[in-house]
Design a protein around this nucleic acid. Structure first.
Lengths: 148, 148
DNA sequence: AGGATTTATATTGCACACAACTTAATTGTG
DNA sequence: CACAATTAAGTTGTGTGCAATATAAATCCT
Protein backbone atom coordinates (compact mmCIF):
# COMPACT_ATOMS: atom_id res chain seq x y z
CA UNK A 1 0.00 0.00 0.00
CA UNK A 2 2.84 2.30 0.82
CA UNK A 3 4.34 1.75 -2.59
CA UNK A 4 1.06 2.27 -4.36
CA UNK A 5 0.38 5.52 -2.60
CA UNK A 6 3.84 6.86 -3.24
CA UNK A 7 3.51 5.90 -6.89
CA UNK A 8 0.20 7.70 -7.01
CA UNK A 9 1.85 10.66 -5.45
CA UNK A 10 4.52 10.75 -8.10
CA UNK A 11 1.97 10.50 -10.86
CA UNK A 12 -0.56 13.08 -9.87
CA UNK A 13 1.97 15.39 -8.35
CA UNK A 14 4.28 15.43 -11.35
CA UNK A 15 1.42 16.66 -13.52
CA UNK A 16 0.28 19.19 -10.98
CA UNK A 17 3.82 20.49 -10.43
CA UNK A 18 4.61 20.66 -14.14
CA UNK A 19 1.49 22.64 -14.85
CA UNK A 20 2.28 25.16 -12.14
CA UNK A 21 5.91 25.38 -13.21
CA UNK A 22 4.72 26.11 -16.73
CA UNK A 23 2.45 28.96 -15.68
CA UNK A 24 5.29 30.29 -13.51
CA UNK A 25 7.42 30.60 -16.64
CA UNK A 26 4.66 32.38 -18.47
CA UNK A 27 3.89 34.77 -15.61
CA UNK A 28 6.68 37.35 -16.03
CA UNK A 29 6.22 37.29 -19.81
CA UNK A 30 2.48 37.78 -19.58
CA UNK A 31 2.89 40.42 -16.89
CA UNK A 32 4.47 42.56 -19.58
CA UNK A 33 1.26 42.20 -21.58
CA UNK A 34 -0.84 42.83 -18.49
CA UNK A 35 -2.68 39.51 -18.68
CA UNK A 36 -2.80 36.22 -16.80
CA UNK A 37 -2.21 32.72 -18.12
CA UNK A 38 -5.88 31.72 -18.48
CA UNK A 39 -6.55 35.06 -20.13
CA UNK A 40 -3.74 34.29 -22.55
CA UNK A 41 -5.36 30.96 -23.40
CA UNK A 42 -8.61 32.74 -24.20
CA UNK A 43 -6.78 35.20 -26.42
CA UNK A 44 -4.96 32.37 -28.21
CA UNK A 45 -8.34 30.83 -28.95
CA UNK A 46 -9.72 34.15 -30.19
CA UNK A 47 -6.64 34.90 -32.29
CA UNK A 48 -7.29 31.67 -34.11
CA UNK A 49 -10.99 32.30 -34.58
CA UNK A 50 -12.58 35.54 -33.52
CA UNK A 51 -16.20 36.16 -32.62
CA UNK A 52 -17.33 33.21 -30.58
CA UNK A 53 -19.97 32.57 -27.99
CA UNK A 54 -19.10 32.13 -24.34
CA UNK A 55 -20.21 28.52 -24.60
CA UNK A 56 -17.84 27.88 -27.50
CA UNK A 57 -14.93 29.11 -25.44
CA UNK A 58 -16.05 27.08 -22.44
CA UNK A 59 -16.04 23.97 -24.60
CA UNK A 60 -12.71 24.67 -26.25
CA UNK A 61 -10.89 25.40 -23.00
CA UNK A 62 -13.05 22.98 -20.98
CA UNK A 63 -13.74 25.71 -18.49
CA UNK A 64 -16.93 26.53 -16.62
CA UNK A 65 -18.94 29.70 -17.20
CA UNK A 66 -18.23 30.35 -13.54
CA UNK A 67 -14.60 30.72 -14.56
CA UNK A 68 -14.97 32.29 -17.98
CA UNK A 69 -17.69 34.84 -17.33
CA UNK A 70 -15.69 36.94 -14.88
CA UNK A 71 -12.50 36.34 -16.85
CA UNK A 72 -14.11 37.69 -20.02
CA UNK A 73 -15.43 40.62 -18.06
CA UNK A 74 -11.86 41.38 -16.98
CA UNK A 75 -10.61 41.06 -20.55
CA UNK A 76 -13.39 43.48 -21.46
CA UNK A 77 -12.32 45.91 -18.75
CA UNK A 78 -8.77 45.74 -20.17
CA UNK A 79 -10.20 46.77 -23.53
CA UNK A 80 -9.05 43.55 -25.21
CA UNK A 81 -12.46 42.05 -26.06
CA UNK A 82 -16.02 43.22 -26.59
CA UNK A 83 -19.12 41.39 -25.49
CA UNK A 84 -22.24 41.69 -27.56
CA UNK A 85 -25.67 40.12 -27.18
CA UNK A 86 -26.76 38.45 -30.37
CA UNK A 87 -29.94 39.91 -31.82
CA UNK A 88 -30.83 36.52 -33.29
CA UNK A 89 -30.63 34.85 -29.89
CA UNK A 90 -30.68 37.15 -26.93
CA UNK A 91 -29.31 34.46 -24.64
CA UNK A 92 -26.02 34.31 -26.45
CA UNK A 93 -23.12 36.70 -26.00
CA UNK A 94 -20.54 37.00 -28.72
CA UNK A 95 -16.95 37.70 -27.75
CA UNK A 96 -14.90 39.66 -30.23
CA UNK A 97 -11.37 41.02 -30.08
CA UNK A 98 -10.95 44.76 -30.06
CA UNK A 99 -8.26 46.46 -32.10
CA UNK A 100 -6.12 46.44 -28.99
CA UNK A 101 -6.81 42.74 -28.48
CA UNK A 102 -5.71 41.94 -32.01
CA UNK A 103 -2.64 44.14 -31.65
CA UNK A 104 -1.52 42.24 -28.56
CA UNK A 105 -0.87 39.24 -30.75
CA UNK A 106 2.23 40.88 -32.18
CA UNK A 107 3.68 41.24 -28.70
CA UNK A 108 2.86 37.61 -27.94
CA UNK A 109 4.75 36.09 -30.83
CA UNK A 110 8.03 35.92 -28.98
CA UNK A 111 6.51 33.86 -26.18
CA UNK A 112 6.86 30.41 -27.81
CA UNK A 113 10.56 30.92 -28.33
CA UNK A 114 11.09 31.87 -24.70
CA UNK A 115 9.11 28.88 -23.58
CA UNK A 116 11.10 26.48 -25.74
CA UNK A 117 14.27 27.73 -24.06
CA UNK A 118 12.75 27.33 -20.61
CA UNK A 119 11.53 23.81 -21.33
CA UNK A 120 15.07 22.85 -22.25
CA UNK A 121 14.12 19.87 -24.35
CA UNK A 122 14.13 19.22 -28.08
CA UNK A 123 10.97 20.07 -29.98
CA UNK A 124 10.50 16.40 -30.81
CA UNK A 125 10.35 15.49 -27.12
CA UNK A 126 7.97 18.34 -26.43
CA UNK A 127 5.73 17.17 -29.21
CA UNK A 128 5.76 13.61 -27.93
CA UNK A 129 4.89 14.88 -24.49
CA UNK A 130 2.02 16.86 -25.93
CA UNK A 131 0.70 13.79 -27.72
CA UNK A 132 0.75 11.71 -24.56
CA UNK A 133 -0.91 14.47 -22.57
CA UNK A 134 -3.73 14.84 -25.07
CA UNK A 135 -4.33 11.12 -24.96
CA UNK A 136 -4.25 11.10 -21.18
CA UNK A 137 -6.65 14.03 -20.97
CA UNK A 138 -9.08 12.32 -23.34
CA UNK A 139 -8.99 9.16 -21.30
CA UNK A 140 -9.38 10.97 -17.99
CA UNK A 141 -12.26 13.14 -19.13
CA UNK A 142 -14.05 10.20 -20.72
CA UNK A 143 -13.77 8.42 -17.39
CA UNK A 144 -15.06 11.47 -15.52
CA UNK A 145 -18.06 11.72 -17.84
CA UNK A 146 -18.90 8.04 -17.54
CA UNK A 147 -18.66 7.90 -13.78
CA UNK A 148 -21.12 10.78 -13.36
CA UNK B 1 3.77 33.56 -36.25
CA UNK B 2 0.39 31.95 -36.49
CA UNK B 3 1.97 28.53 -36.45
CA UNK B 4 4.21 29.35 -33.54
CA UNK B 5 1.37 30.67 -31.45
CA UNK B 6 -0.85 27.71 -32.19
CA UNK B 7 2.00 25.37 -31.33
CA UNK B 8 2.47 27.25 -28.08
CA UNK B 9 -1.19 26.94 -27.45
CA UNK B 10 -1.07 23.20 -27.89
CA UNK B 11 1.89 22.87 -25.60
CA UNK B 12 0.85 24.93 -22.64
CA UNK B 13 -2.78 24.07 -22.98
CA UNK B 14 -2.26 20.31 -23.08
CA UNK B 15 -0.47 20.46 -19.75
CA UNK B 16 -3.03 22.76 -18.23
CA UNK B 17 -5.92 20.63 -19.48
CA UNK B 18 -4.33 17.36 -18.38
CA UNK B 19 -3.74 18.67 -14.89
CA UNK B 20 -7.33 19.78 -14.51
CA UNK B 21 -8.65 16.54 -15.99
CA UNK B 22 -6.57 14.66 -13.44
CA UNK B 23 -7.96 16.58 -10.47
CA UNK B 24 -11.45 16.09 -11.92
CA UNK B 25 -10.92 12.33 -11.70
CA UNK B 26 -9.72 12.60 -8.13
CA UNK B 27 -12.55 14.90 -7.03
CA UNK B 28 -15.39 12.37 -6.55
CA UNK B 29 -13.00 9.91 -4.90
CA UNK B 30 -11.62 12.52 -2.53
CA UNK B 31 -15.11 13.86 -1.84
CA UNK B 32 -15.78 10.56 -0.13
CA UNK B 33 -12.83 11.29 2.17
CA UNK B 34 -14.00 14.87 2.65
CA UNK B 35 -10.78 16.40 1.32
CA UNK B 36 -9.58 18.28 -1.74
CA UNK B 37 -6.81 17.41 -4.15
CA UNK B 38 -4.16 19.74 -2.68
CA UNK B 39 -5.12 18.51 0.78
CA UNK B 40 -4.59 14.96 -0.47
CA UNK B 41 -1.11 15.90 -1.68
CA UNK B 42 -0.26 17.23 1.77
CA UNK B 43 -1.54 14.07 3.39
CA UNK B 44 0.49 11.92 0.97
CA UNK B 45 3.57 13.86 2.00
CA UNK B 46 2.76 13.41 5.69
CA UNK B 47 1.95 9.73 5.31
CA UNK B 48 5.45 9.27 3.97
CA UNK B 49 7.10 11.32 6.68
CA UNK B 50 5.13 12.72 9.57
CA UNK B 51 5.96 15.72 11.74
CA UNK B 52 7.32 18.38 9.42
CA UNK B 53 7.53 22.13 9.45
CA UNK B 54 5.32 24.27 7.29
CA UNK B 55 8.38 25.33 5.33
CA UNK B 56 9.32 21.71 4.63
CA UNK B 57 5.91 21.08 3.14
CA UNK B 58 6.10 24.29 1.13
CA UNK B 59 9.38 23.13 -0.34
CA UNK B 60 8.25 19.60 -1.06
CA UNK B 61 5.05 20.65 -2.79
CA UNK B 62 6.55 23.89 -4.13
CA UNK B 63 3.66 25.81 -2.66
CA UNK B 64 3.59 29.20 -1.00
CA UNK B 65 2.80 29.70 2.68
CA UNK B 66 -0.06 31.80 1.37
CA UNK B 67 -1.49 28.57 -0.01
CA UNK B 68 -0.41 26.12 2.66
CA UNK B 69 -1.14 28.08 5.82
CA UNK B 70 -4.91 28.24 5.32
CA UNK B 71 -4.94 24.74 3.82
CA UNK B 72 -3.25 23.32 6.90
CA UNK B 73 -5.67 25.24 9.06
CA UNK B 74 -8.53 23.52 7.22
CA UNK B 75 -6.88 20.11 7.64
CA UNK B 76 -6.62 20.98 11.32
CA UNK B 77 -10.30 21.91 11.47
CA UNK B 78 -11.09 18.53 9.90
CA UNK B 79 -9.18 16.88 12.71
CA UNK B 80 -6.64 15.32 10.35
CA UNK B 81 -3.51 17.19 11.48
CA UNK B 82 -2.25 19.02 14.54
CA UNK B 83 -0.14 22.16 14.53
CA UNK B 84 2.38 22.69 17.27
CA UNK B 85 4.88 25.47 17.89
CA UNK B 86 8.35 24.10 18.47
CA UNK B 87 9.76 24.96 21.86
CA UNK B 88 13.27 24.94 20.39
CA UNK B 89 12.34 27.55 17.79
CA UNK B 90 9.14 29.42 18.42
CA UNK B 91 8.95 30.56 14.82
CA UNK B 92 8.47 27.05 13.54
CA UNK B 93 5.22 25.11 13.53
CA UNK B 94 5.29 21.36 13.30
CA UNK B 95 2.52 19.57 11.44
CA UNK B 96 1.65 16.11 12.66
CA UNK B 97 -1.06 13.68 11.63
CA UNK B 98 -3.76 12.89 14.15
CA UNK B 99 -5.02 9.37 14.65
CA UNK B 100 -7.83 10.21 12.25
CA UNK B 101 -5.34 11.55 9.72
CA UNK B 102 -3.33 8.33 9.86
CA UNK B 103 -6.50 6.25 9.62
CA UNK B 104 -7.54 8.00 6.43
CA UNK B 105 -4.61 6.38 4.69
CA UNK B 106 -6.40 3.05 4.69
CA UNK B 107 -9.32 4.57 2.82
CA UNK B 108 -6.96 6.16 0.33
CA UNK B 109 -5.20 3.00 -0.75
CA UNK B 110 -7.73 2.16 -3.44
CA UNK B 111 -7.22 5.50 -5.16
CA UNK B 112 -4.17 4.56 -7.27
CA UNK B 113 -6.02 1.61 -8.78
CA UNK B 114 -8.97 3.79 -9.76
CA UNK B 115 -6.66 6.33 -11.28
CA UNK B 116 -4.81 3.76 -13.35
CA UNK B 117 -8.13 2.68 -14.84
CA UNK B 118 -9.09 6.28 -15.59
CA UNK B 119 -5.75 7.03 -17.22
CA UNK B 120 -6.33 4.12 -19.56
CA UNK B 121 -2.69 3.62 -20.43
CA UNK B 122 -0.15 0.96 -19.48
CA UNK B 123 1.89 1.57 -16.35
CA UNK B 124 5.03 1.76 -18.47
CA UNK B 125 3.63 4.69 -20.45
CA UNK B 126 2.50 6.41 -17.29
CA UNK B 127 5.94 6.03 -15.82
CA UNK B 128 7.57 7.40 -18.94
CA UNK B 129 5.21 10.35 -18.83
CA UNK B 130 6.10 10.94 -15.21
CA UNK B 131 9.80 10.91 -16.03
CA UNK B 132 9.38 13.47 -18.79
CA UNK B 133 7.23 15.68 -16.58
CA UNK B 134 9.77 15.68 -13.77
CA UNK B 135 12.50 16.64 -16.21
CA UNK B 136 10.32 19.36 -17.69
CA UNK B 137 9.42 20.73 -14.27
CA UNK B 138 13.07 20.85 -13.26
CA UNK B 139 14.01 22.69 -16.40
CA UNK B 140 11.12 25.15 -16.11
CA UNK B 141 11.70 25.94 -12.47
CA UNK B 142 15.44 26.34 -13.00
CA UNK B 143 14.62 28.84 -15.72
CA UNK B 144 12.16 30.66 -13.47
CA UNK B 145 14.74 30.93 -10.71
CA UNK B 146 17.46 32.18 -13.03
CA UNK B 147 15.31 34.81 -14.71
CA UNK B 148 14.36 36.38 -11.39
C1' DA C 1 -51.46 30.31 -27.63
C1' DG C 2 -49.43 29.09 -23.14
C1' DG C 3 -47.00 26.70 -19.75
C1' DA C 4 -43.15 23.24 -18.89
C1' DT C 5 -38.57 22.25 -20.37
C1' DT C 6 -34.28 23.26 -22.11
C1' DT C 7 -30.45 26.29 -23.18
C1' DA C 8 -27.02 30.28 -22.54
C1' DT C 9 -24.95 33.07 -19.52
C1' DA C 10 -24.19 35.11 -15.02
C1' DT C 11 -23.73 34.93 -9.93
C1' DT C 12 -22.49 32.99 -5.34
C1' DG C 13 -19.63 30.50 -2.30
C1' DC C 14 -15.57 27.94 -1.24
C1' DA C 15 -10.82 26.48 -1.95
C1' DC C 16 -6.75 27.06 -4.11
C1' DA C 17 -2.28 29.81 -6.07
C1' DC C 18 0.65 33.47 -5.65
C1' DA C 19 2.53 38.29 -4.94
C1' DA C 20 3.13 41.46 -1.41
C1' DC C 21 3.07 42.53 3.21
C1' DT C 22 3.03 41.72 8.34
C1' DT C 23 4.44 39.71 12.71
C1' DA C 24 7.38 37.53 15.63
C1' DA C 25 11.49 34.97 16.74
C1' DT C 26 16.37 33.96 15.80
C1' DT C 27 20.89 35.02 14.16
C1' DG C 28 24.66 37.93 13.00
C1' DT C 29 27.63 41.95 13.88
C1' DG C 30 29.95 45.63 15.96
C1' DC D 1 24.84 43.48 24.90
C1' DA D 2 22.13 46.14 21.40
C1' DC D 3 20.37 46.24 17.07
C1' DA D 4 20.17 45.29 12.20
C1' DA D 5 19.38 41.48 9.12
C1' DT D 6 17.40 37.18 8.35
C1' DT D 7 14.04 33.54 8.82
C1' DA D 8 9.33 31.21 9.63
C1' DA D 9 4.76 31.52 9.41
C1' DG D 10 0.58 34.06 8.75
C1' DT D 11 -2.40 37.63 6.38
C1' DT D 12 -4.32 40.36 2.51
C1' DG D 13 -5.79 41.00 -2.11
C1' DT D 14 -6.55 39.39 -6.83
C1' DG D 15 -7.58 35.86 -10.09
C1' DT D 16 -8.76 31.48 -11.13
C1' DG D 17 -11.65 26.68 -10.99
C1' DC D 18 -15.78 24.57 -10.06
C1' DA D 19 -20.34 23.21 -7.86
C1' DA D 20 -24.69 25.04 -7.21
C1' DT D 21 -27.91 28.31 -8.12
C1' DA D 22 -30.20 32.21 -10.58
C1' DT D 23 -31.96 34.61 -14.58
C1' DA D 24 -33.71 35.06 -18.84
C1' DA D 25 -34.56 33.68 -23.51
C1' DA D 26 -35.77 30.13 -26.78
C1' DT D 27 -38.01 25.75 -27.71
C1' DC D 28 -41.20 22.04 -27.08
C1' DC D 29 -45.62 20.15 -26.38
C1' DT D 30 -50.32 19.71 -26.41
Amino acid sequence: MTDELSLDRQLCFSLYAASRAMTAVYRPVLDELGITYPQYLVLLALWERDGRGVGDLCGELSLDTGTLSPLLKRLGALGLVERQRLASDERRVEIRLTERGRALRAQACEIPRRLAVAAGMPLADIDELRTILVRLTDSLSTYTREET
